[in-house]
Amino acid sequence: MQATITTPGPFVKRADAVSLWLFIAAGAAIAVWVAWSAVARIIDVLPNHDVAVLAVFAGTPAEAPIGPDGAPVAVALEEAWLTVPELPIAALWAIVIQQVLLVATVVTVVTALIWLSRNLARGVAFSRTNTALVATAGIVGLLGYVAVPFFGNMAANGGFAAISDRTFDNVIMSVDPFTLVLAAFVVAMMSTVFSIGERLQRDTEGLV
């Protein structure tokens, strides 16, 4: 008697496939928008004249006109945009590097997720390629999460130095360590899940 092996059909329903392709389109749009915004930001700061820099404060006392008839009220300043007449060269290049890293991070992550979504839409769930895509998106995303604000802080500190003639010390790292650890845990878990799924599928196929 000759055994007949039936190949299973795709596990993705039509509605799920449509959702995945919409996700792909949204990811591509996000990557294009981030790239365009980064280029615009670089063009805006390169003349090095009245440069706007996002600065993070540690509850610095300030006054805001939010009282009756616009009366000043004491507030704790956490974040503000500084307009710096001229940034130090190091701070200026920090902004350029920040934007380049932002684009590289977003494009890499979006490309990996688009590729992954395309594979899933075609019925390929667990494979070495998908495992590598998940790991790549996660690791690059984590590195970008740290590196992008790091260079932003460098630019902000240069802005503080230029405005205060180096008399105001406000060196702050704006990365939330709890969020970073949580994101790293999620990335590790997803990579492990895809790796285990890949191994189980390979072992199952070996039994057929």
Rank of each mutant, 00 (worst) to 15 (best):
T4C: 06
T6C: 07
T6I: 13
P10N: 15
V12I: 12
A17M: 06
L20C: 02
L22W: 05
A29G: 12
V34Q: 08
V34H: 03
A35G: 12
A38K: 05
R41I: 07
L54D: 13
A58T: 11
A58D: 15
A62F: 05
E63Q: 15
A64C: 09
D69H: 13
P72W: 02
P72L: 03
V75H: 03
L77I: 04
L77G: 01
T83H: 11
V84I: 10
A94H: 03
Q99S: 11
V100M: 05
L101T: 10
T105M: 12
V109M: 06
V109R: 02
S117K: 01
S117F: 05
N119T: 04
G123A: 02
A125E: 12
F126I: 09
N130G: 04
T131L: 09
T131K: 05
L133N: 04
T136K: 08
G138Q: 04
Y145A: 13
F151Q: 05
G152P: 00
N153R: 11
M154F: 08
A155V: 07
A156L: 06
G158F: 00
F160T: 06
F168E: 13
N170D: 09
I172N: 13
V175F: 01
D176T: 06
V181L: 13
F185I: 15
V187C: 01
A188I: 07
M189Q: 09
I196K: 07
E198V: 09
R199Y: 13
T204H: 12
